[in-house]
């Protein structure tokens, strides 16, 4: 289910002194099963962009195609089912009395039999790494990380083909962060769902994304593989972003020891360890 954005622009508070161009002629294509990262400083247009993906905002100018079909007035409901959007802090939107009811809310109108409904709900819950024993619990009895996963299950239950996660790990502790991001990766790897991750963590983006979209002032500043994008550390800094910590360390080593043939395309601690070991081994054999 490819997603194609063509010449998309959006202006907030048009015709007032506060007029602000939030999106400026965006062109973009996201393929089936891709894991896409979107980065950009606060106010760069990331959220405005992802809210167009499922028609929460309608294009002022430009077109959105899902699966080759132009999104328009008559098919917008269908489109919304295909693209699941999880906002920041989705747990604030839980409102039902039990976990089961909250997750099932989105499929109420599908007129499923009770068994079918239960299967869909428990399947969605399992995908987020939770088990059925919490289905009857009250929302208030859950931990922060559990609440967030229940909220995401409430989107997954609708079987979206594209899942947009806006800062899903914000405010979670490192273990909770690993869990949430791990299950997003699993959804892509095992169920082939396209995942679009908006994040301020360069480390997470570098580790997970196949493709990174860098936004700045409503425009796409860069687009490419993590390697290609994070080579532009200087430019990223200028637009309020950074490179993953390990890249920054390796870039500085490379500057200080220019003769050292160091590979600076290093994003994770594991990659960094291997690169140091490689350099040391090379030294021994010389």
């Amino acid at each position: 289910m490819p997603l194609k954005i063509e010449n998309l622009s959006h202006t907030y508070m048009k015709g007032t002194p506060f007029e602000k161009k939030a999106l400026d002629n965006i062109n973009l294509e996201i393929c089936d099963g891709e894991f896409v990262g979107i980065i950009g400083h606060t106010g760069c247009g990331k959220s405005t962009l992802v809210q167009h993906f499922n028609g929460l905002l309608k294009p002022e100018e430009g077109n959105i195609y899902i699966d080759g079909l132009l999104m328009n007035h008559s098919n917008i409901k269908e489109m919304r089912k295909k693209v699941g959007l999880v906002f920041q802090y989705p747990e604030y939107q839980l409102f039902e009395s039990t976990v089961y009811k909250d997750i099932a809310f989105g499929i109420k109108n599908e007129k499923l039999s009770p068994e079918e409904e239960y299967n869909r709900v428990s399947d969605a819950l399992n995908k987020t790494g939770l088990t059925e024993d919490i289905l009857d619990k009250s929302i208030y009895d859950l931990s922060g990380g559990q609440k967030r996963r229940v909220a995401i299950a409430g989107i997954i239950v609708m079987n979206p083909q594209i899942l947009v996660l806006d800062e899903p790990a914000a405010g979670l502790d490192p273990a909770g962060r690993e869990e949430i991001l791990g299950f997003a990766k699993k959804l892509r790897d095992e169920n082939g769902i396209t995942v679009i991750l908006v994040s301020h963590s360069m480390e997470d983006i570098a580790k997970l994304a196949d493709k990174v979209i860098v936004m700045n002032n409503g425009k796409i500043e860069m687009i490419g593989k993590p390697k290609e994008v994070f080579r532009n550390g200087k430019r990223l800094n200028e637009i309020g972003l950074s490179v993953p910590q390990m890249s920054s360390v390796f870039n500085k080593i490379g500057e200080i020891l220019p003769d050292l043939n160091i590979n600076t395309d290093v994003f994770t601690v594991e990659e960094a360890t291997e690169e140091i070991l490689r350099l040391l081994n090379k030294g021994e054999t010389v």
């Binding site: 140091i276 040391l280 030294g283």
Partner: peptide, 19 residues
């Protein structure tokens, strides 16, 4: 901190004969 780490790694790489 990053700064301390960089110094240690540079020492290590120099000593290890990697450059």
């Amino acid at each position: 901190t990053e700064e301390e780490g960089i110094l240690v790694l540079i020492e290590l790489l120099k000593k290890g004969g990697a450059c």
